[in-house]
Design a protein around this nucleic acid. Structure first.
Lengths: 179, 179
DNA sequence: ACCTGAACACCGTTCAAGT
DNA sequence: ACCTGAACACCGTTCAAGT
């Protein structure tokens, strides 16, 4: 049984970390995050033994949202939506929405947490639901796998690129997978 | 007229920085680099006012090498070599050779030096020589520009990916540009 | 002019003392 | 058990003193 204040603190810390990391990237300091969360640094370290752990946890929240988005897209496909439209939508989500989130992603380069790994495989499973339907309708090149799409999605450029270049990237990327 | 020892120091520092940044990325410390170069920290700071400047300079050396490679490829095309082979070779160079250099690249995210900018435009000009020939022979899709190829090249994944995935990325990327 | 290296400032992390 | 915040360690940067 966790103490109520402990649970509350953990949430405050994660919220503050999400906000500050998105805004300043790695630049956000532990003292700063603790202050924003209304706790002492020691408390922060009790919940997250290291800054890398904190960043990983913040990134896990983002990944959770991405997985939810992929699942929603897969559900829409099951409901009759066009798989290609949904795949394109996912690429757009990746390249656009996480504008600030990319900072967290960047801060997390080289981190490998089990929780993250597991979530990624869940996202992969949801994505697979879409590619299966797309293949069944002959919309993808025959040799394209779910892993291929995930590989390309993982190379999505960040939002430092001009709008036009980002749109073009989506276009070019779809070309390599569509039939 | 620069003093001989000053010029020598600058070179030592750049060499040491290149080696240590490639090996440890951002983790390489200024004291450490200075020690490896055989100078005091103050001397390092006299040549490069900030760590970001030092990293930018190290990256500039890499970019110089890349530009030289693109030029060499363009020269081979002028000499009758297959443009597609050369383009593929450049992608391979990007994704393979800079295995350790990616660390420098990563350390340099968000840096914008004029020298770098200028070198990139030189690289672009060399790349253009290749795409022009490729177009003349009908090897590229009609709407593909030099900028498109550069955009895709810029998203090359790093060497944390398994060998097979890297090869696959090259394959998929070429698909989106080849006729 | 350029070099040296001790000193400063900042930030991730620890830990003794509190509740 | 968990929280607090002063103290420590490390590293980027500065600067007074040397040549």
């Amino acid at each position: 049984m966790v103490r109520a204040d402990s649970a509350r603190n953990r949430k405050s810390i994660l919220d503050a970390a999400g906000t500050l990391l998105a805004a300043q990237g790695e630049g956000a300091g532990m003292d700063e995050i603790a202050a924003a969360a209304g706790v002492a640094v020691g408390t922060l370290y009790r919940h997250f033994p290291t800054k890398a752990d904190l960043i990983a946890a913040a990134l896990a929240e983002l990944t959770e949202r991405l997985v939810a988005d992929v699942r929603a897209a897969a559900d829409r496909v099951d409901g009759g939506a066009d798989p290609v439209t949904e795949l394109r939508g996912l690429l757009e989500w990746l390249i656009r929405k996480p504008a600030s989130d990319k900072a967290i992603k960047a801060a997390a380069t080289g981190l490998a947490s089990d929780a993250l790994q597991e979530m990624e495989s869940r996202g992969f499973a949801e994505l697979d639901r879409i590619t299966v339907v797309a293949h069944a309708r002959g919309l993808l090149r025959a040799d394209i796998t779910t892993a291929d799409f995930a590989l390309l999605a993982a190379t999505a450029p960040d939002d430092s690129l001009p709008e036009a270049a980002r749109d073009r990237w989506i276009e070019l990327t779809l070309r390599s997978v569509l039939a």
